[in-house]
Amino acid sequence: MDMITDDLKTPFSQLLLSIADDKLIQGHRASDWTGVAPILEEDIAFSAIAQEEIAHAAELYRLVADLTGGNADALAFGRAAEEYRCASIVELVDEFDWATAIARHFFCDHLDGLRFGRLANSCFTPVAGLAARIQAEESVHIEHVDTWVQHLGHGGDDARGRMQQALDALAPHASMMFEATQGGELVESAGLFPKADADMFDQWLTGLKKITGQAGLTLNVTRPAPDAVGGRRGQRSGDFAELLDEMSEVYRQEPEAAW
């Protein structure tokens, strides 16, 4: 179907926003490495991934705008901090530490692979088609980040230590990506975001642990408490205010103008 009932529009757009905001902010953080990454070839590759994340976000914003009004740029740049729905893991500054950047992508890209797999089976056809395409690109991101986790895990004590530290530091934030969005159960049962056979958190963790196991790293991530409140409900981490100021610095000078 290509129409959804009014009562589902808000919960579904909350879900789509949570994913789009994750992608925009992950891509925004990643794009800041363009020109200053550790290896020239990697600079190009990581920048390509940043572009894909932001391009995916743009397409999701357009869908949301179709559902609830507004436009993609206003959604991306013009909301108040508490209106964003991303998880804290994408907001944190990486302090120019490559292990942190890789750990963030490791957690996020694996989840994207799974959630776009589910969206590809959505009963809402505009989302299903887009999700199938995004999922195909995500598999390339996953391959890229997995290779990095392996390289750093096998790259000597110093590198393994840094990678382990980054994984440990981000783990609590990673689990909060699973905080339910408002009306999340409704969109699941309506078939907009259908459940997969296996539980998504379990699948995610199994996928991650396969790689960390091979790389000689450990992973301690637990499912978030059912009543935990975080980014999906608009609670922002400390790094977000500064990020938003920076990201919308020019946009806010004249929000109505074409740039």
Partner: peptide
């Protein structure tokens, strides 16, 4: 080779 191919694709 794996890394080379991954970089070649992106570049």
């Amino acid at each position: 080779g794996k890394m080379a191919l991954s970089y070649a694709k992106k570049h």
